[in-house]
């Protein structure tokens, strides 16, 4: 594995597990679902992988919507 190919050499599993840890961060969790999805997409994940990461992290819901104005 050449160091120059590092970005292409990241296995999909690693990418997804990283995305899961990323999604579990409270600050990330607070952000809208669309923002999280868009960011992961920019990071090279496919829609399928993003959905997978969301399911694995248990953060597939939009938390920011749950606490409405009282």
């Amino acid at each position: 594995t050449s160091p120059l190919d590092m970005e292409n050499a990241i296995p999909r599993e690693k990418l997804i597990s990283t995305a899961v840890k990323f999604l579990l961060n409270p600050r990330v969790h607070q952000s809208p679902l669309a923002t999280r999805k868009l960011f992961l997409k920019k990071k090279g994940l496919t829609d399928e992988e993003i959905e997978l990461a969301l399911q694995q992290s248990g953060t597939a819901t939009d938390e920011s919507q749950s606490s409405g104005p009282s």
């Binding site: 990283t18 995305a19 840890k21 990323f22 600050r27 990330v28 952000s31 960011f39 990071k43």
Partner: peptide, 16 residues
């Protein structure tokens, strides 16, 4: 927010 995006980037990169 740009700062949020930067935080996301750093967090993601630190996990890799």
């Amino acid at each position: 927010f740009a700062s949020q995006e930067k935080f996301f980037q750093e967090l993601f990169d630190s996990e890799l």
